[in-house]
Amino acid sequence: DTCAICRVQVMDACLRCQAENKQEDCVVVWGECNHSFHNCCMSLWVKQNNRCPLCQ
């Protein structure tokens, strides 16, 4: 699966965690819609949006 926000494989660290060298801290979360995201990506997304980027 791919993170619906950053488009990186969810089993890999997101771009932000890769840049900050925090790959082991990058975890996967699932929305109520069952789409998967990196927690970092979702945390930033929900500050500006309240819907899944794929379900909009």
Rank of each mutant, 00 (worst) to 15 (best):
C17T: 00
C40F: 00
C26T: 15
V28Y: 02
D12V: 09
K22L: 06
L15I: 05
R51D: 14
R51P: 13
Q48R: 13
D12E: 12
W30S: 15
C17W: 00
C33V: 01
V29L: 08
K22F: 08
H35C: 05
G31M: 08
M11H: 14
C26G: 11
N34F: 05
C52D: 00
E24H: 09
Q56N: 05
W30G: 15
H35L: 00
E20S: 10
V27Q: 05
V29I: 11
C6K: 01
R7A: 14
N49Y: 07
Q9R: 13
R16S: 13
V8K: 14
C14S: 04
V10L: 12
C26V: 09
L54H: 13
V27I: 08
N49P: 05
R7D: 13
Q9I: 03
R16N: 05
S43Y: 02
H38K: 00
C33L: 00
W30L: 14
V46W: 10
W45V: 11
N50Y: 10
C52E: 03
D12R: 10
C52L: 03
Q18H: 08
M42F: 13
L54N: 12
C17N: 06
Q23D: 06
V27D: 14
D1T: 04
V28P: 04
L15D: 12
D12H: 07
V10F: 11
A4T: 14
C40M: 01
V8L: 13
H38M: 04
C40V: 02
C33E: 02
Q18E: 09
C41H: 04
Q23T: 14
N34C: 05
C6A: 01
V27M: 08
L15Q: 14
Q48I: 15
A13D: 05
A19K: 04
C55D: 05
Q23H: 13
C26N: 13
A13W: 02
C3T: 01
N39H: 12
S36N: 14
L44R: 02
R51A: 12
I5Y: 14
D25A: 05
Q23W: 06
V10D: 07
C6Y: 00
Q48P: 11
E24F: 04
V10M: 11
N39R: 12
N49H: 15
Q48K: 11
A19Q: 11
K22Q: 11
A13S: 12
A13Y: 03
Q23L: 08
S36I: 09
N34T: 10
Q48V: 06
R7G: 14
C3M: 04
E32Y: 04
T2N: 12
S43W: 02
C52F: 00
I5E: 09
V28S: 08
C14M: 00
F37N: 00
L54K: 14
Q48W: 03
A13T: 08
C17H: 08
V29S: 13
R7T: 10
P53H: 03
S43I: 04
E32P: 07
V10R: 09
V28M: 15
S36P: 14
V8I: 12
T2C: 02
C17Y: 00
G31S: 12
E24G: 12
N21W: 03
M42H: 11
E24T: 10
R51S: 14
K47W: 06
S43E: 15
M42Y: 15
C40W: 03
T2H: 12
F37E: 01
G31W: 04
G31D: 14
R51E: 10
P53G: 05
V8W: 07
